[in-house]
C-alpha cells in the first residue's frame, strides 16, 4: 500500500474515572477509523463537538497512543512509542493562535526549536532554514520576523509562525486542528490558501480538522464526516458536499448558515435535536436520524462504497441519495 498516511482500524478508548475503585464508563473517542492519504492530498475531517476529531489528530501525531489498530506515516509505523523518525514525519497546527506559540520565545527561536530538538544543522543552517520556513509561510521578509515576539503579531501572523514551525522539519503529514476557527473572517482565506498551497506544492499530506463545513471546499480534496468516533461518510469533497448520502452529513450541511438573507433556512428534522443514546448493535445515529427505520436499531452499518471513492455508513443511503 502506498500513501503518506495509512490508518487501519484506529481506536482510542478513554476510561473516564479518577476514582480509586470502580472503573467509569469507557468513552470510545475513536472507534475504528481507517483511511489513507496520498502525498500532496488533503483529507478534511468534520463533525460535531466530541465526535473524536481531536483525539484522532492526537493519535496521528503520536500525542496519544492508540488502544487498537495501526497508524503508519510515510511507511513508518507508530509502534509502542513514537521514535525520532516518526516524530520528524508528523507536525501539527493548533486552533488557538495565542496558546500555540511560546510567548517567551522569539519567532526565530520558535521555528528553530524542532531543528534543535533533532540536532539538525549548524546554527547558521538552522537560522537559514527558519527564515526559509517563515517565507514559505508568507511572512516576508522572514529575517524581519526572527527577532520578534508573539505578542507583537496578529492572530493571523501567529498562525503563520505556527505553520512555519510545522513545516521546518519537512514532515510527511501535517495535521491542522481547526486552524482558522479562532481567526477573523477577513484573514481566514489567506491561511487556508497557504495550507492548500504548501500541501499541493510538496509531497506532504494534510489532515484538516474543522467543524465548519463551509470552508472545507477551499482546502480539502476529500472529506470525512465523523460521528461518535467513526467515519459515517468519506469521499471527494465536492461529492460529499453536493450529494451528501448520510443523513448526518445532510443535517450538518443544512445547518450551515447561508450568507444570503433571501434564502430561507433549510428546516432540520426535529429528532436531530432531541435524540438520546444509541442502542447497542444499532446505528449510532439512529436516535437522531430523520430517516431511521426499524432496521436501523438492529444493524450497525459499516462504510460501504456508494460511488467509487465515496463511502457511506448508512443502510438507507441508496434511498436517501434519490
Amino acid at each position: 500500500m502506498s500513501g503518506a498516511v495509512l490508518v487501519t482500524d484506529a481506536r482510542k478508548t478513554f476510561v473516564a474515572s479518577r476514582r480509586l475503585f470502580g472503573g467509569g464508563t469507557p468513552v470510545h473517542a475513536v472507534d475504528g477509523v481507517s483511511f489513507s492519504i496520498a502525498p500532496g492530498r488533503v483529507l478534511g475531517i468534520a463533525g460535531e463537538s466530541g465526535s473524536g476529531k481531536s483525539t484522532l489528530a492526537n493519535l496521528l501525531v503520536g500525542l496519544e497512543l492508540p488502544s487498537g489498530g495501526e497508524i503508519a506515516i510515510g511507511g513508518r509505523p507508530l509502534g509502542r512509542k513514537p521514535n525520532a523518525d516518526f516524530r520528524r514525519s508528523v507536525q501539527m497546527v493548533f486552533q488557538d493562535p495565542f496558546g500555540s506559540i511560546n510567548p517567551r520565545f522569539t519567532v526565530g527561536r520558535t521555528v528553530e526549536e524542532p531543528l534543535l530538538i533533532h540536532g539538525l544543522g549548524s546554527e547558521a543552517e538552522r537560522h537559514a532554514r527558519a527564515i526559509a520556513a517563515l517565507e514559505e509561510a508568507e511572512l516576508r521578509p522572514g529575517a524581519a520576523f526572527m527577532e520578534r515576539f508573539p505578542h507583537e503579531l496578529s492572530g493571523g501572523q501567529r498562525q503563520r509562525v505556527a505553520i512555519a514551525r510545522a513545516i521546518v522539519l519537512r514532515p510527511r503529514l501535517l495535521v491542522a486542528d481547526e486552524p482558522v476557527s479562532m481567526l477573523d473572517v477577513s484573514v481566514r482565506a489567506g491561511i487556508l490558501r497557504l495550507l492548500n498551497r504548501l500541501v499541493h506544492e510538496s509531497e506532504m499530506a494534510m489532515v484538516f480538522i474543522t467543524h465548519d463545513l463551509s470552508i472545507v471546499a477551499s482546502v480539502c480534496d476529500e472529506l470525512a464526516v465523523m460521528y461518535r468516533g467513526r467515519f459515517v461518510e468519506h469521499g471527494p469533497v465536492r461529492a460529499v458536499l453536493q450529494k451528501p448520502r448520510h443523513p448526518y452529513t445532510r443535517a450538518l450541511i443544512a445547518a450551515v448558515p447561508v450568507p444570503d438573507p433571501t434564502v430561507p433556512p433549510t428546516p432540520l428534522p426535529a429528532k436531530l435535536m432531541s435524540g438520546g443514546a444509541p442502542v447497542a448493535g444499532g446505528c449510532r445515529f439512529a436516535p437522531r436520524c430523520g430517516s431511521a427505520i426499524a432496521a436501523c436499531e438492529t444493524v450497525d452499518p459499516v462504510l460501504e462504497e456508494a460511488q467509487p471513492g465515496h463511502r457511506v455508513a448508512c443502510i438507507r443511503h441508496r434511498e436517501i441519495a434519490q
Binding site: 484573514v187 482565506a189 477551499s218 469533497v237 447561508v258
Partner: peptide
C-alpha cells in the same frame, strides 16, 4: 464562504 458554492474562492 458559502456552502452552496464550494467552487467560489474566498478572499482575505
Amino acid at each position: 464562504p458559502d456552502i452552496r458554492h464550494p467552487e467560489r474562492s474566498i478572499v482575505s
